[in-house]
């Protein structure tokens, strides 16, 4: 085989490699099933679910927290005494991140990434990041009372989780004033 033929084969192989690398789409990663999260959050005896309707009174505050309207008319939650659990979704870059949040006495006591669908930013699933939300409260300006350190390369996912943390605290105030 002469050099010219070898170069041509190398070129064809390179293009084939490029084709195989093109358009790689990641799958959905389920870190914890939502029903398992609810069950764990209430010592394996979860209460019956309730719903909070997103009324015109709530919409402006929710819009302020999320930066956009909530994409549904009602939000399901599980509440027992002063504790409420929420399963919320927010888009990080292009796909929704499903997050479970438990609020008790106006403070976040548990935040866990349940399902992650983006190709980047999955580092937000780690407890070193999510544990920062524990004890966070909602300020009068509808912001988290604690500073949450970001993760380089996962800024959009970090911001999405911050918004969901604020939203869960606000919704908790509405169901347990």
């Amino acid at each position: 085989m002469n050099t010219f033929a070898q170069i041509r084969i190398a070129l064809v192989l390179s293009l084939a490699l490029a084709y195989s690398a093109f358009g790689d789409t990641p799958d959905e990663d389920v870190y914890l099933a939502p029903d398992a999260f609810i069950s764990e959050s209430f010592d394996d005896s979860p209460p019956k679910p309730s719903v909070l309707w997103v009324t015109n009174e709530l919409k402006p505050q929710i819009q302020k927290i999320l930066g956009h309207d909530y994409p549904a008319l009602r939000i399901r939650y599980w509440a027992q005494q002063s504790r409420s659990a929420w399963i919320l979704e927010e888009i990080g870059k292009v796909k929704p991140i499903t997050v479970g949040i438990v609020v008790e006495d106006g403070k976040i006591v548990r935040l866990k990434v349940l399902i992650y669908r983006e190709s980047h930013g999955w580092e937000v699933k780690h407890s070193f990041f999510t544990d920062q939300f524990i004890e966070a409260e909602l300020t009068e300006k509808l912001r988290l009372s604690k500073n949450i350190d970001g993760i380089s390369g996962a800024t959009l996912s970090v911001n999405a989780l911050k918004r969901l943390g604020g939203l869960a605290l606000y919704l908790h105030q509405q169901v347990q004033p």
Partner: peptide, 19 residues
Amino acid sequence: LTHQGQIIETLPDAAIPGN
């Protein structure tokens, strides 16, 4: 969703029996 296409709610699997 409503008949007009407005999303009322997406029930997660935690709110549905079975998986």
